[in-house]
Structure formats: C-alpha cells, structure tokens
Amino acid sequence: MSHLTSVPSGPEPEGTDLATELLRRCARDDDVAFAQLYDLTAPRVFGLVRRVVRDPGQAEEVTQEVYLELWRHASRFDAGRSSALAWVFTIAHRRAVDRVRSAEAAGKRDVVYGHRHREVAHDATSEVVQDRWEARRVRAALETLTPIQRKAVDLAFFGGYTHSEIAVMLDIPLGTAKTRVRDGLIRLRDALGAEGS
C-alpha cells in the first residue's frame, strides 16, 4: 500500500532534514527513499567501514549488512534522540567494529593486525568533494583536543580498539584511556557545536 503513495512532503518543520525524512519513508517500505538514503550516505558509510575493517572486500560485505539493517530497522529510528545521520553512522560503526573483533576472535589477528597498523584521522582521504568543507570544520575541531585525547579518539573510532587496548597502545595507565576518549569527544562536540553545525 505504501508504494501507492509517494508521500507528500508538505512544508517541512525546522530541523527535519532530508535524511530524517528518507528514514521515515523507508519505515513505510519506500524503496525509492532507500535508494536516495544510500546515495546520500554511502561514501561516508563505506568510507568509515573501510577505515575500520581495512579490507575492501570485507568493507563491502559490512556495508551491505549496514544498509540491510537500516532498511529493516528504519522504524526504530527515534528522531527525539538523535539525528538521522548519527543513527546511520552509529549502526555502521558498530557493525564495522563487530567485524574486526570477530575476525580477530576467529584467529585472524595477525592478518588483521598487520592491516590495522596505520596512521589515521589526520591524513584522511577526501575523494568526496562536497564534504570537504565540512571535513575541514571537523579537522579544526579536532585541533582543540590534546594530542593524547586525539590519539585516543582516533584509535577508538577509526581503529575500533577497546579503551583497555588503547591504554596499552598509548602506554597510559589502564582506566585512563576511557577518560581520554570521553574528554576528547566532549571537546570535539563542544568545538563543533560552538561553530554551529
């Protein structure tokens, strides 16, 4: 039935962005909206997953899983709690991290570890032009973090490591890495917010 009614959007209230609208339509079984959501988010979803899992083939698999989950669970999105994009990337990140950890648990640690030894976050790519300005804004916000906070956030987000692993990698006392991650994210949030996103 929902296919009969490409939903009239009407006047959009403030703060209701395109991704939010698309997710709502996905929840109503609207595959056109889903394709649009894919086009809107795929470079950031795929790029994030690939950064975390490293292997391009696995990144493709995980990206497929992510989109399948977005489609199936679109009705779970709660716009009162998060933006649509944050919800999308939260799911993508979780899936990617689950993949590297289970790959390691399955005994591929050495292989994956070899791949995972790479400097991240700052040398970042940018094949995607339209997001460049936004990316600059994020880099600037990252500059407000202390080096250790930045490194901790980097290893957690792009490396997919646990805070205990990060403590060892950064050679800081166990139990302090989680504080670095948290303080770093708070600074990042405040810097991004202060600039008005």
């Binding site: 944050a86 790519t125 987000f157």
Partner: peptide, 18 residues
C-alpha cells in the same frame, strides 16, 4: 547521544566513494 552526534561528524574524514 550528544557524543555520538559528534563522532558521526568524524566520518566526514574517512569518506570514500564505494
């Protein structure tokens, strides 16, 4: 919730055409 919003922006740094 608020930290996830901030972290989501980090994905701008790794964007890559699939």
């Amino acid at each position: 919730d608020s930290l996830r919003e901030a972290a989501a922006d980090l994905s701008l740094l790794s964007a890559e055409e699939p």
